[in-house]
Design a protein around this nucleic acid. Structure first.
Ligand SMILES: [Mn+2]
Ligand SMILES: [Mn+2]
Ligand SMILES: [Mn+2]
Ligand SMILES: [Mn+2]
Lengths: 219, 219
DNA sequence: ATCGATTGTTTGAGTCGTCAAGATAAGTTC
DNA sequence: GAACTTATCTTGACGACTCAAACAATCGAT
């Protein structure tokens, strides 16, 4: 029922409000979706009229329950599709995001179910993002950015999926979901941080990059 | 580059002109796509301006070479997708047309190639329709409608893919691509025609239905 | 040839999503 | 608080696609 445009707005709002304050602004959406603020204002009126967002002009906005539900459905489709493209179709984790960005709006429920079965009801997508279940419930992860990790042993659990060059590079360096590394204290001056594995291979990461890689401490 | 709407018009024109006279009319397109004739007229002006069709008001129209090329690409995508949905995803041949109707406009070339490889460069879709090769060249089949077949032995080579109830019924009766049957002379009065196979099971088809099933004589 | 039916074209309007540019409300700084 | 800056809102417009309804051409059969 919602158009792909509406689905994209809902997903963007979910993403933006999802970190901390529980609400977002016209400006943030405008930057995220690369449309002008005026366009967003109009869409917010529309989404409010449809009962999907709580929006008070100039005061910010957030998803109402129905909006969250709809957004979660799209996220579920997106992540299942990414998993499918990697596991079944053999595409690289660096090239599935764009494709999923489109397919998420057009796949039938029937086909989505098939994908889900075929993959054995996966809980995470290829970048380590959790896949909402049929009711839109999301397993929470307590991963932290590699950037904030004290020196120690960590496992990579999640990577930002939007920068495909980064994904290619990480893959090449062996930094993949599930891999474990010894992490050095960041060298703030050099703007660098080092990972090393048992074998001994070392990888230098810029702090910028380290902000996109999420890890969990290992016992 | 062409929008999905334009792709659908090109595909419809290819389909309509493809049978005999090599051209089609505004009215036929209007019925095929279920839009008003006025809408078609406007789109034809647009397609003419883009060099995709030859259109003289009131005199009919046909695809120009570039239009054929574009249309063939869409047909190729449609049929490869249908094959994929049946072979790999395990959907029934009666439920893939609608899905392909949408996916044909959004699948990336990358993913289409993967599908093609995965299926081993198939030449026919699940309904027996030939799949254009990368250059848009179509293997021609010389199948005839079952309706026009004299009594004798025939193999089913193609079935119209648009009526999903028909496809379900055919499947249930064992009338599948590649199956061979003994065909009776049509009983025009009763409006019925009979297929029987070695085993002995008989199937009665209405002449209407027999027009949708295409066969090839067996030696 | 003329009437009537059929087919195609024109025109005016609507929806959706978008932008540009001007107006206004809220900060921020002194 | 006055002045400046930034965020947001409003308005008018446009591109794609569509419909309804009025109009025009064509066909075909007397
Ligand atoms: Mn993604
Ligand atoms: Mn992902
Ligand atoms: Mn089909
Ligand atoms: Mn088919």
């Amino acid at each position: 029922m919602p158009s792909s445009t509406v689905e994209n707005y809902l997903k963007a709002i979910l993403h933006l409000q999802g970190e901390g304050r529980g609400s977002t602004t016209v400006g943030e959406i405008s930057r995220e979706l690369e449309v002008t603020p005026g366009t967003v204002t109009i869409m917010m009126r529309h989404l409010k009229a449809r009962g999907l967002v709580a929006y008070e002009p100039r005061r910010g906005l957030s998803l109402k329950p129905r909006g969250v539900t709809e957004a979660m459905k799209v996220v579920r489709r997106h992540r299942l599709i990414e998993a499918f493209l990697v596991e079944v179709m053999g595409l690289d984790w660096s090239e599935v995001h764009e494709e999923a960005e489109i397919l998420e709006h057009v796949i039938s429920d029937r086909l989505l179910d098939r994908i889900n079965e075929m993959l054995g009801e996966p809980t995470h997508d290829p970048h380590g993002d959790p896949i909402p279940d049929r009711n839109g419930v999301l397993a929470k992860d307590r991963a932290m950015p590699l950037l904030d990790a004290a020196a120690g042993r960590y496992r990579v659990v999640r990577v930002s999926d939007e920068d495909s060059a980064l994904l290619e590079w990480l893959n090449e360096k062996g930094v993949r979901i599930g891999e474990e590394f010894e992490v050095s204290d960041p060298d703030r001056a050099a703007g660098v941080l080092e990972l090393s594995r048992r074998g001994g291979k070392r990888v230098q990461l810029g702090l910028q990059v380290a902000g996109q890689v999420f890890v969990e401490a290992v016992a």
